[in-house]
Design a protein around this nucleic acid. Structure first.
Length: 269
DNA sequence: AATACACACAACCGCCGGATC
DNA sequence: GGATCCGGCGGTTGTGTGTAT
């Protein structure tokens, strides 16, 4: 590879006389032999970036690795699965949802207790719809937020969904299965759900990724949000629409990678 | 010292999309 | 238009090493 550069991997395998397929050679090169690979443990900054990007992109390891020079998707994936995921699980299990923290509403405590929704930094963020009107970062995530304050977006993602996804650092991303996986409590109490599997048709059931990327919203008390939410919105109107985070402007999303936590959200709680 | 266990990491596997024939 | 090849990706497994018992 150093002599001839990247060409056809099957030729590489042939010419090297190895009992390996091209695919295997490619993987070995990318994940281990490449001279520009960074060795050693992940720095706290890298870890921060990984957590942040994963909250946005989910398990798109290659896209995450593109923002970490010298790190491979495989390396990041392993690091996530072996270290970060475990740490988050530990944090969420050790954090007491009943702690008398006045900054966390009773409702949010309930939700946290039920789902383990907890950031690895032990900052309990539950962005509200109001955040959307005041927070430039959220607005940047929601292109049509002024005309379209309700969740529906062309990309199939909504303000609160984006916020919930953004703050869902538990590793489950949007794959909440049948459970409530995030909540917003600004007096209007809304909950984001991943709908029960049974509610999907067979065609959708067949694609787990599709299900995991689809969420529905439930308005619990019929308080309209900007007059746009009503109970008719409840249910399946999101089913079948995929979240396409790949279309998001990562440069914008990355603006707030450091430092955690995000002060705008904290001040709104 | 031997064994069991946990962990990190490299490698494998299956699937997919694009290019080419 | 279909078949095949190739590269890329994400999920999973295998393996070596360190640690606890």
């Amino acid at each position: 590879m150093l002599t001839n550069g990247q060409g056809c991997w099957s030729d590489v395998a042939r010419n090297a006389g190895l009992q390996r397929c091209g695919k295997s050679c490619r993987l070995r090169w990318i994940n281990y032999l490449r001279p520009d690979l960074k060795r050693g443990a992940f720095s706290p900054q890298e870890e921060e970036i990984i957590v942040h990007l994963h909250s946005i992109l989910g398990n798109r390891w290659s896209q995450i690795s593109a923002h970490l020079p010298g790190r491979t998707d495989n390396e990041i994936k392993n690091f996530w699965n072996s270290t970060i995921k475990k740490r988050m699980k530990h944090l969420s299990s050790t954090a007491s949802p009943n702690a008398s923290d006045s900054s966390v509403s009773e409702h949010n405590k309930d939700v946290m207790a039920g789902t383990g929704f907890m950031s690895m930094f032990e900052q309990e963020y539950f962005p509200t719809y109001d955040d959307l009107s005041s927070n430039s970062f959220l607005q940047s995530m929601v292109p049509n937020h002024t005309e379209n304050p309700l969740p529906m977006l062309k990309h199939g993602r909504n303000a609160v969904g984006a916020a919930a996804g953004y703050f869902d650092l538990t590793g489950s991303g949007f794959s909440g299965d049948n459970e409530i996986f995030a909540s917003v409590d600004n007096g209007r109490k809304r909950e984001l759900h991943a709908p029960p599997l049974e509610s999907f048709g067979e065609d959708l059931k067949s694609t787990e990724n599709t299900i995991h990327r689809n969420i529905s919203i439930r308005n619990n008390n019929n308080n309209n949000m900007s007059g746009n939410i009503n109970s008719a919105d409840v249910g399946s109107f999101w089913i079948g629409e995929e979240l396409k985070v790949g279309e998001w402007d990562l440069e914008i999303l990355m603006k707030d990678v450091s430092p955690f936590p995000l002060p705008d959200f904290q001040s709104s709680i």
